[in-house]
């Protein structure tokens, strides 16, 4: 093959595979930061470990050990309560605020900026703030509870009130996300639809249920997915605010994984529990996505 023919052949090949230049780097990054850790977790979960080194093959031993430990069921239950409580409160709150902020208000921009603040705060800061607010001795909430004659506020000493406090702190942190996403979707609904509905004699409630809600439903479901995953995988806020107490009732699955990994260095068991979190996350996503697909009206 002569020099010029080789050159044109190589050029042809380069042209043909040009597309690779664009997506290969992205694929490599995804493989490196997403796929590799998952496979590494699977590898670790089927091994006995000593610190970060694998020692012997354990098969499904770590999964069995984790799932038969009575405290594991408690952590799964705590996670589900925490996620359900957070989503059930922050979604309606975000929705109501989005409805309010969608109107013509004075200082709307300022209000939006103030409302978004909790979302941009670090989880540690949120936790410390709520810890101080609810402190039984020098916290302002305890002070007012006592002033109102409602007795001593032992919020973190009781399993129910400490879980409630945890959910409350997380709702305070999460509702701005729900609000922003829903508010953005409100603004995508074409005004002509409302105009047509008004001409047809639809009430405000009918406009909302027949036009607004169906059009923003997918955003609500996506927001639900985001809030669920975000809350299910959360460690820092819980670690700082209740540290899993009292009696381990606020120790959620993600916190348990953190402790098994970096406090006890039982990385094999932690990986097994981590894969359980992944399974839960996938399950939640599948359920929500299937709802979106089934009920897509427009």
């Amino acid at each position: 093959m002569s020099g010029s023919r080789l050159s044109s052949f190589l050029k042809g090949v380069a042209k043909k595979w040009e597309v690779l230049y664009f997506f290969v780097p992205g694929v490599l990054v995804i493989l490196l930061i997403t796929i590799y850790p998952i496979f590494n977790s699977i590898w670790l979960s089927v091994h006995e470990t000593r610190y970060l080194r694998t020692t012997s093959f354990a098969g499904l031993g770590n999964f069995v050990k984790f799932l038969t430990d009575p405290s594991s069921l408690r952590t799964i239950k705590a996670s589900l309560i925490y996620v359900t409580g957070t989503v059930a409160l922050s979604l309606p709150l975000g929705f109501i605020l989005a409805v309010i902020l969608n109107r013509d208000l004075r200082f709307k921009g300022l209000l939006r900026s103030i409302i978004i603040l909790p979302w941009i705060m670090a989880q540690v800061v949120t936790a410390l703030l709520w810890k101080w607010l609810l402190d039984p001795v020098y916290g302002p909430v305890a002070y007012w509870i006592q002033r109102l004659g409602l007795g001593r506020a032992d919020i973190f000493g009781n399993q129910y009130s400490s879980m409630f406090a945890l959910i409350l702190a997380n709702v305070w942190r999460c509702y701005p996300l729900a609000m922003i996403l829903i508010l953005a979707s409100f603004q995508t609904v074409p005004g002509e639809l409302y105009e047509a509905a008004r001409i047809d004699g639809a009430s405000k409630l009918q406009s909302f249920t027949k036009i607004t809600f169906p059009l923003i439903r997918s955003t609500i479901l996506i927001t639900t997915i985001l809030l669920t995953l975000n809350t299910f995988n959360m460690v820092t806020l819980i670690l700082v605010l209740t540290a899993g107490g009292p009696f381990g009732y606020t120790e959620v699955l993600a916190l348990r994984v953190y402790r098994e990994s970096f406090e006890i260095w039982n990385v094999g068991l932690a990986s097994a529990a981590g894969l359980l979190i992944l399974a839960f996350n996938i399950l939640f996503s599948i359920v929500y996505i299937s709802i979106i697909k089934q009920e897509s009206l427009y």
Partner: peptide, 21 residues
């Protein structure tokens, strides 16, 4: 030890000292 202070961690205890309580 007042029961409600049992929920403190070591930093909470120290803040109690600093608060003069």
């Amino acid at each position: 030890i007042p029961q409600e202070t049992l929920v403190w961690d070591v930093d909470g205890m120290f803040q109690g000292i600093q608060a003069g309580r």
